[in-house]
Design a protein around this nucleic acid. Structure first.
Lengths: 131, 131
DNA sequence: GGACATTGAATGCATGCGCATGTAACTTCG
DNA sequence: CGAAGTTACATGCGCATGCATTCAATGTCC
């Protein structure tokens, strides 16, 4: 009936769930309190900083994140409203929108990143993952 | 500036996020499609089945799950609406509510569990966690 | 060129979540 | 007993998400 392999997998899943819940909750709260942005917003900024060009199309950005297209659209809208990113047309394909970091966005990301790393360091062990 | 330990932790976080997103999305979809319940509902049923008495107070149930008290209240309400659990008063403490599995709930859990294990087995490796 | 499919992004809608609050039932202590 | 504080659960509200749809711009095929 109950394959021991199944039990092991269920155990892994519970650990994963526990770890994710704890960390994401702490991270979201810390980012929100200290910088006024949520996890999704931070992730988006992070992807933009990673990109060498710091200018990416919505579609490409969506591909890097675990977010639906509509959720990304709204996340970028929030970031734009906060002045952290700008949207600009793409001459090659006028359906596409380029998302670009503003200076404020770069600064916000830099300080938020310190918060992120502090929270992660507190909750995650680099070597010997327990999850 | 950039502590290599930090980078390792960030890498672990990205892996965790990737794994969680993939699995939870697949699981939620599979449970919803095949059994008409979401992940939270399944987790709640699962906790009730685990319990020897199959009757737990809301508060205790909430402690086992990564859900706020209000979210659990609504989750149980959905389960009740679907006829999978019942709520009953607790004579000892009339503030408390006992949540009990119905026969339908037991059956639904049994079949949903097979789905869950199939999905987890597909996405998670029991030994040598890659996350 | 013109009809039809496809793609990139925005948006209406339904849903689930957390926070803050409300209400009823306990508990404590004078 | 009775007032004040605490606990258990429900609910109003705002927010973020996903799905389905929409709209404009491209691409394709004849």
């Amino acid at each position: 009936m109950s394959d021991p392999g199944d039990d092991a997998v269920v155990g892994r899943w519970r650990d994963l769930l526990a770890c994710y819940s704890t960390v994401s909750c702490a991270l979201d709260r810390a980012l929100q309190d200290a910088h006024g942005i949520g996890m999704s917003e931070f992730e988006a900024l992070d992807r933009l900083v990673d990109a060498t060009c710091e200018q990416r199309r919505m579609h490409d950005l969506a591909g890097d994140m675990y977010l639906s297209q509509s959720a990304l659209s709204r996340t970028v809208a929030r970031l734009e409203r906060a002045g952290l990113v700008g949207r600009s047309m793409c001459a090659d394909d006028r359906r596409a929108i380029f998302v670009t970091l503003t200076d404020a966005g770069r600064e916000r990301h830099a300080s938020a990143r310190r918060t992120q790393r502090a929270v992660l360091a507190e909750h995650l062990v680099p070597e010997r993952a327990e999850v």
